[in-house]
């Protein structure tokens, strides 16, 4: 994502309210924004609301877009804020997992599972059931870790872009990313070591 504005889009046309151009913007970016919202919220209806609000807001505020970041980073920023607001709306009381994220960010996080499940065949690692488990594991991450993991590892943003989207320091992005990855590794280790157990039993 080196270019700030993709060559097929004209920022001047977008800023002047050109509907053809805005339609091109929607078609270019609705896919990644919808996927991000789906992974963040795990619910089609909520993801759709986030998608609509993202482009309604983009439409409304495109004139204030200043090219300090790329257009896609700017859209991710709107979408991420919408998704986080949706989560807060859905669950107004603050949960324990969420308040703890801030406090223990720099703290230790020691791995607990040491089963090597890398040897499982690819079709088992990516079976329909395993894919569902991969999605569920993301949903179990505290939202502040979840959003960092989704942007960096699923949407393939750089650390710097993730930092811009979330208004965080590089260090905070790196710490949250590491914690998210280690948390998912633990969850996947529990799941796949059971699969290894199943295979041994069958033999």
């Amino acid at each position: 994502m080196s270019e700030k504005i993709p060559p097929e889009l004209s920022l001047d046309a977008l800023k002047s309210g050109n509907r053809d151009e805005f339609t091109r913007l929607v078609d270019a970016y609705s896919g990644p924004m919808y996927r991000m919202a789906m992974k963040m919220l795990g619910d089609g209806q909520d993801a759709e609301d986030v998608l609509q609000n993202t482009f309604l807001n983009a439409f409304k505020h495109i004139r204030s877009f200043e090219e300090r970041s790329s257009l896609s980073t700017w859209l991710y920023r709107i979408a991420a804020n919408e998704a986080l607001m949706m989560i807060r709306k859905r669950r107004p009381e603050t949960t324990m997992t969420d308040t703890s994220v801030e406090g223990d960010e720099g703290g230790e996080y020691s791995p607990l599972q040491f089963v090597d499940w890398c040897c499982l065949p690819e079709d088992e690692l990516l079976s329909v059931e395993a894919r569902r488990h991969l999605d569920r594991a993301i949903q179990r991450l505290p939202e502040k870790l979840r959003i960092v993991f989704i942007l960096r590892d699923l949407e393939d943003l750089s650390i710097e872009e993730t930092r811009q989207v979330l208004d965080l320091s590089q260090t905070a992005v790196k710490t949250r990313l590491l914690r998210a990855r280690l948390n998912l590794r633990e969850q996947l280790s529990s799941y796949y070591s059971e699969r290894i157990g199943d295979r041994i039993e069958k033999k």
Binding site: V115, L125, D153, R185, L188, S189
Partner: peptide, 8 residues
């Protein structure tokens, strides 16, 4: 397993 997690 961390590498594999990210890969998956």
């Amino acid at each position: 397993t961390l590498r594999k997690t990210i890969y998956l």
